[in-house]
Write a protein that binds this DNA or RNA. Structure first.
Lengths: 148, 148
DNA sequence: AGTAAATTAATTGTGTACAACTTAATTTTT
DNA sequence: AAAAATTAAGTTGTACACAATTAATTTACT
């Protein structure tokens, strides 16, 4: 059937556009994150932490819900951030199952440098902020609409 | 500056929407690909091969350009597809640097099952084909426009 | 209270991604 | 033709992702 063949073509699949756009985006961020010594997923974790005041505590589960990542990904990533002295990991004494994650002073001070990253990205890629917002909204609504 | 703080918020970043949408998409495909015993990136490689007649030969570089993946990713992935007898890898005799990749009979026969995957995905997620097309076009134009 | 069920991180194993490098083969220069 | 540059695929090392499992703890329930 012609229809199924068309659907099967790589370029016609949203999945592939998303997949390659996402990886491209990571590559675009890389040179901007290198001075901060952060990988892209590490940067995302820091973004979440930076949204709150310095003393704010997150559990690993909190971060996971926000970023849609599980402990299998987060635990080693957070250990790497800790070894760079950007965050502190501390097992909760109230509930020994939980581990509190919070900004360390070095991680907090990194925020001012990070603030320049989004505008630099727009600038360097020549992406119009309007186009970017449109795409972002469309993606968000598409995935909010579907029930998963 | 308020503007920079807003830009820094996770939800305002297209990068994060792309990143999580892409991973979500992978997860949605997973149950559909499991019967085919394919991972999502393996499925993408197969899509490229299925676009051509059975005898068509691709080099690793060809596939890499199409999928925007390098040999460091493709070589082990292709070896896994070969071990499942879905493709054949054969070093070219004309140019010994190259390796020809082509569908094996089993890989070719898998195409008929794979044809159902895209429609099943739309069906199971309730995503409207129209919304999907709009997003796909917007993403494509956004990334074609930027010069990278 | 005491046990079952649920929750939280961590661990294990597989499979990408990709930078940087290596090796071998081919092409271009000189 | 020999040297230099380029190209193709593979290798190595690091860092995700994530399914499945485990271990420790807490909560719920009888």
């Amino acid at each position: 059937m012609a229809k199924a063949n068309e659907l099967l073509k790589l370029d016609n699949q949203l999945c592939f556009q998303l997949y390659s756009a996402s990886r491209l985006m990571t590559k675009l961020y890389q040179p901007l994150l290198k001075p901060l010594d952060l990988t892209y997923p590490q940067y995302l974790v820091m973004l979440v932490l930076w949204e709150e005041q310095m003393g704010h505590k997150f559990t690993v589960t909190n971060l996971g819900q926000r970023l849609k990542l599980d402990s299998g990904t987060l635990t080693p990533l957070l250990k790497r951030l800790e070894s760079k002295h950007l965050i502190k990991r501390q097992r909760s004494s109230e509930d020994e199952r939980q581990v509190w994650i919070r900004l360390a002073p070095l991680g907090d001070s990194l925020k001012s440098q990070a603030k320049r990253v989004p505008e630099k990205l727009l600038c360097e890629t020549g992406i119009k902020e309007q186009d970017l917002n449109t795409t972002r909204e469309l993606l968000k609504s598409l995935f909010d609409k579907a029930d998963f």
